[in-house]
Design a protein around this nucleic acid. Structure first.
Lengths: 197, 197
DNA sequence: CAAAAAATTGACACCGTGTAAAGTTGACAT
DNA sequence: ATGTCAACTTTACACGGTGTCAATTTTTTG
């Protein structure tokens, strides 16, 4: 316990986070992080055996500090599917920009590193669960479209709310966070709900 | 001309393509490509100064061989917005799996290499144009939702039809190509069209 | 104070990209 | 047949980033 939560370890995590926040992606090197934390490059390896493990630890640290899980859990209070969807998109959609830097680095690593892939998949599983809860609520309301199975609905919603999708709209197309949230609600609604015309 | 279309050059491009098709992503090295093409690693550099330029050339080669542009142009024959959308999704959606390997490598490179980013942006511009044409047709029909500006509609559709979105649904979630096409049509429709209930 | 833990220093191996230079081979032009 | 030109080979090396190792110093703490 005292080992795991050492001062230095925490400082490394915070610096990694800050650096990736400023410049999302894979540009940040181990030496940059060491310099930012005011220690030698080797000292970083003393705490984290590989870059992948450091990134994974940083995401976990972030999730802990920001307390995603309880933020996502809030949406479960809502009664109707519609309300749940809105609460969920509010919670997750606004969480994305806070983790974007680290997420992007992990996403880039995913292709080559097994461990990074597993860590990312694990975190995304939480989001998927949230999507599942939303779909279930819609189903209960009897509002779910018949064009998709529950499984497909979950996956479609999950993909719609992916970090990459957010990235494309907000970072590449320049949508504001507010626009993103608003339109995601509309789109998800349109996608999941039966549209009788 | 004779220079640009040399036997060897073409063979390198074909091998790059094949290798990336088998194993999408950034794993394929210059030496792998050289070996596959039956030449020395340096010979590859004789034709393509950098890995980025090779990847860019490979996408261009692919686009040329597969003739995307004319495939996408076909959708312009359709009269109504709905028909255009369907033709466009048919054309582009079925093109994605054919280029996925190379696309993924280019996408990974995009983060670090300026030239790769530009090449990818350029190719994506073509898709965006297609989305623009679809939205325009819908607007003309008077069926476009009032919740989105034309620009936003184009971007929303563009993001929906992104390679990454396809990847998530087909590669990660295991949707069949047929399902993907079918549901993309539905989703895009639901997203763009006014839903009077 | 002595032992243990944390960090430093400096060197090095490995990989993949990219550069450089000298040498080989074959076509073909006169 | 000779010379030359282009394509390709071979060998060697520089560079940057990750990760390893071992010897040493600093800090903590029983």
């Amino acid at each position: 316990m005292s080992r795991k939560n050492s001062e230095t370890r925490k400082r490394i995590l915070e610096c990694t986070w800050k650096l990736l926040e400023d410049e999302p992606g894979s540009a940040t090197r181990m030496s940059d992080i060491a310099k930012a934390a005011g220690i030698s490059r080797q000292a970083v390896y003393l705490h984290f055996p590989t870059r992948a493990e450091l990134l994974v630890a940083t995401t976990r640290h972030l999730d802990e500090v920001k307390d995603v899980d309880s933020r996502l859990a809030k949406s479960r209070a809502a009664a109707t599917g519609e309300e749940r969807l809105e609460a969920f998109i509010e919670a997750w959609g606004n969480y994305i920009p806070e983790i974007y830097g680290v997420a992007k680095a992990l996403l880039a690593m995913k292709d080559t590193d097994e461990e990074a892939a597993a860590a990312w998949a694990d975190r995304m599983q939480a989001v998927r669960h949230g999507c599942g809860a939303v779909v279930k609520a819609f189903r209960k309301d009897g509002h779910l479209t018949k064009n998709l199975t529950s499984q497909q609905s979950i996956e479609a919603l999950w993909a719609l709310l992916s970090v990459r999708h957010w990235e494309q709209l907000v970072v590449e197309c320049g949508w504001s966070q507010k626009q993103y949230i608003k339109h995601m609600n509309r789109m998800a609604q349109a996608m999941l709900v039966e549209c009788e015309q």
